[in-house]
């Protein structure tokens, strides 16, 4: 996949297929000396069956019935692997699954994070019954979006109005730009001091 945000969309959809009603997505960009990109996708679905957990990234072990191969986790594992990172999966039957992928931030093969605003609003639009908590950290700054906050206090529990989605996409995009810019500015001042 061209962007890591597409992997995130894919793994989050897995969680929804597993019956989750809340998906938590964390992106942590430690651009400094740590040089580490961490992506965590956590769901409260039914968890993975034991057979799958023994070899979660084997594409030929899949719970689906539409075809015999499942590539989502295998692709993410391969993406992390080629960037000196790794994929870790924790799952508990009936409680959910947690997928954590790490990458060396500056690795030349690391795909860009990509359009997270599009990923998040695509998830919201396509799955109105599911809540999403999205946290994006860049060094010391962070951005948090919790769809439960947006639903709170209003009678209408869905966020799928297309006009709302349109504004939501814009505002996530703006916030993420600010997040990236804010850090660049602080890096700049550090350089000045140095």
């Amino acid at each position: 996949m061209r962007e890591l945000s597409l992997h995130i969309l894919d793994i989050a959809e897995n969680g929804i297929t597993a019956g989750a009603d809340c998906i938590q997505i964390l992106i942590n960009e430690a651009r400094g000396s740590e040089d580490l990109l961490t992506i965590v996708i956590e769901d409260n679905g039914r968890g993975m069956p034991a057979e799958k957990l023994q070899k979660p990234t084997d594409p030929f072990i899949t719970t689906r019935t539409t075809r015999r191969v499942g590539l989502g986790l295998s692709l993410l594992a391969a993406a992390a692997d080629r960037c000196e990172g790794k994929l870790e999966i924790e799952t508990e039957s009936g409680r959910g699954t947690r997928v954590e992928a790490t990458f060396r931030y500056s690795h030349i093969d690391r795909a860009p994070v990509g359009d997270m605003a599009a990923t998040i609003t695509t998830l919201i639009m396509g799955n109105p019954q599911v809540d999403f908590v999205y946290t994006h950290i860049v060094d010391s700054e962070d951005f948090v979006l919790d769809t439960r906050d947006l639903k709170e206090g209003t009678q209408d529990q869905s966020l799928t109005d297309p006009v709302l989605i349109f504004h939501l996409t814009q505002s996530i995009r703006d916030s993420l730009n600010k997040l990236a810019r804010g850090n660049r500015k602080s890096e700049g001042t550090e350089e000045n001091h140095g």
């Binding site: 951005f143 948090v144 109005d161 709302l164 916030s175």
Partner: peptide, 18 residues
């Protein structure tokens, strides 16, 4: 924490709900 946009969104949501 960049959370200032949430209030704006709530406003938009209320308007669209109407």
């Amino acid at each position: 924490m960049a959370k200032l946009t949430i209030d704006d969104l709530k406003k938009i949501k209320e308007e669209t709900a109407k």
